[in-house]
Amino acid sequence: MTQALPTRRAAPGRELAGFFSDLAAGLRMTDLWRTFAWDEMQQRYRRSMLGVLWIVIAYAIFVGGVSIIFSGFSRQDGAFFVMHVAIGYAAFTFITGNIVDGCQVFVGARAWIHSIALPHSIHVYRSICRSIFTFALQFVVALAIMIAAGWRPTLTGLWVLPAIAVFLLNAVAIQYLMGLISARFRDITHLVTSITRLLLFVTPILWTRFDLRGVRSTIADFNPVAHYVEIFRAPLMNLDPRPLSWAVVLVLTGLIWLGAIIAAARMRRRLAYWL
């Protein structure tokens, strides 16, 4: 359909600049991807009576169930463990959700990509917008649980703001990168799904880092997702964020963006052919 830009010139070359102007042009069309995201949410819960409320219910059931069963395996105090699960799982879902959704971000938008010359980033923002919505609802549940468990906000908690900013920054690059790669190589989607399933068990959510000793605690540090969860969860639990976690997250953020830039420079133009 309509081209948003009045003048357009298409010729090979200048791939790198193309990626950044794609990101910027998409960001300007806020109204469009917000509408897309909202429609998608509504369609997912269409004809269910409780609708979007299911996100809240499902999350409460998960946190409740896990807390009852797994707190017995932890040496931590009951309230501490519940908060640990409630915040940790929301952060975990956001990060892994963006990786998994990223695999579908362009494949799922095939019909639109084949019919309108929109910035590809539109589809990325739409997908992130949806995951933020879920994240926000889950966070509200976590907050309610925490307050019920006697948690009160502290100054350390402010560290959560840069953590959220870094999460969003990562989400853009992760989804763009995964979207391009899995549009070209369809096996990636299946690989990612199976790895994410495993990640839930090797990330300190159902167990705490403090329960581990020696070698095992060192090995747990090799899981990058654990550090993402850590920078978000620690401040909310009145723990000072670990410098190691922030360092790992920042380095990874840089690497993921680098990967996205390289992938975009090489693959972005051909995307429509792969769908």
């Binding site: 309509t2 081209q3 009045p6 010139r9 298409a10 010729a11 309108i116």
Partner: peptide
């Protein structure tokens, strides 16, 4: 329409384009 990118050559369009 801007859906496929050219492999070679130039496509220049002045004006808002709608493609069905």
């Amino acid at each position: 329409a801007g859906i496929y990118a050219p492999d070679d050559g130039v496509v220049e369009i002045d004006g808002r384009t709608t493609a069905l």
